[in-house]
Computed example of a mutant assay.
Amino acid sequence: MGPGTDAPVLDFAPWTQTASGIRLDLLSPQPDMFTREDIAAGLSHAARFSGQTGRFFSVAQHSLLVSSLLKAWGHTPEVQLLGLLHDAQEAYLCDLARPVKVLVPGYKELELRLWAAIRERFGLDDLPPEVKDADNAALHAEAWELLGPPAGDWAGPQAEASLQTVPDARHWLNAVLTPQEARSAFLQRWAELEGPSATGGNLN
Rank of each mutant, 00 (worst) to 15 (best):
V9H: 06
G54N: 03
L146P: 00
S162L: 09
M33F: 12
Q188C: 03
G148T: 05
L84K: 11
A185F: 14
F56A: 08
V176E: 15
L84W: 11
R55P: 04
L124T: 07
Q89N: 04
Q61H: 11
P167N: 06
H62C: 05
E160N: 03
L163N: 09
P179T: 07
T76H: 03
L146E: 01
G21S: 05
G200S: 14
A72G: 07
L70F: 08
A46F: 04
K101S: 10
P99A: 12
H45Y: 11
G148D: 01
F56L: 09
L203A: 12
Q17I: 11
G156W: 04
F34R: 03
A117Y: 01
P150F: 02
P149A: 04
F122R: 04
L84P: 05
Y92E: 11
K108F: 14
E192G: 09
L139G: 10
N204K: 09
T53C: 05
G195S: 01
A151W: 02
D135H: 12
T199P: 11
A19R: 08
A47R: 06
G54H: 05
M1S: 10
R121C: 03
D11Y: 10
H86A: 13
Q188P: 07
R48L: 15
H86G: 06
H45K: 13
P128F: 01
D168H: 14
C94I: 15
L124C: 08
F49Q: 09
G200P: 05
L24H: 00
R98Y: 10
R48H: 11
L146Q: 01
A41K: 10
A159D: 02
G156I: 08
S197L: 15
A138C: 03
K71A: 14
P14D: 03
W144N: 08
H62Y: 11
A191G: 13
A198N: 08
W144G: 03
G2E: 15
K108Y: 11
K108R: 15
S58E: 04
D25F: 00
G200T: 09
Q30G: 04
A116T: 11
M1Q: 09
I39W: 11
R183H: 06
T76F: 01
E37N: 14
R36G: 13
L93I: 12
E192Y: 12
Q89F: 10
Q164E: 12
S162T: 13
F12T: 02
A72S: 09
R36E: 15
V104H: 11
P157L: 00
L82P: 05
P29C: 04
Q89P: 10
E90C: 14
R189P: 04
E145C: 07
S58P: 00
E37Y: 08
A143R: 02
V102G: 07
F12V: 02
G21R: 01
T5I: 09
L96W: 15
V131M: 01
A13D: 00
Y107V: 00
F122C: 06
